[in-house]
């Protein structure tokens, strides 16, 4: 699995949403999006749900780690850094 890292912690709204959507859109099934953010990006998660992608949201020390993959049988828990 190839990791597409998006560290959005210092980006202003709406750049994190724009970037993550465009990554998500053109991502292949061998890749997964790893986003680090200071907020829980609810719209992004909703879209992942709607598209039936696998996703994982973890809050660690007030930093959000969001993993999204188009692969359905993938254990994202193994890929999260925290």
């Amino acid at each position: 699995m190839k990791k597409i890292l998006l560290d959005a912690r210092e980006m202003e709204h709406p750049i994190p949403l724009q970037l993550s959507l465009s990554y998500l859109q053109s991502m292949s099934s061998g890749e997964f999006l790893y986003m680090i953010h200071r907020k829980n990006p609810i719209p992004l998660i909703e879209i992942a749900k709607e598209k039936k992608y696998s996703y994982l949201v973890k809050n660690h020390n007030d930093i959000w780690h969001i993993l999204i993959s188009k692969e359905s049988d993938i254990n994202l828990e193994d890929l999260v850094d925290v």
Binding site: I15, Q18, L21
Partner: peptide
């Protein structure tokens, strides 16, 4: 830089989502 980032991301998103 801030204006640029917002401008560029809006532009890139259009290209990636639609044009390409």
């Amino acid at each position: 830089a801030e204006s640029m980032m917002i401008l560029l991301q809006q532009h890139n998103m259009k290209e990636e989502q639609m044009l390409y």
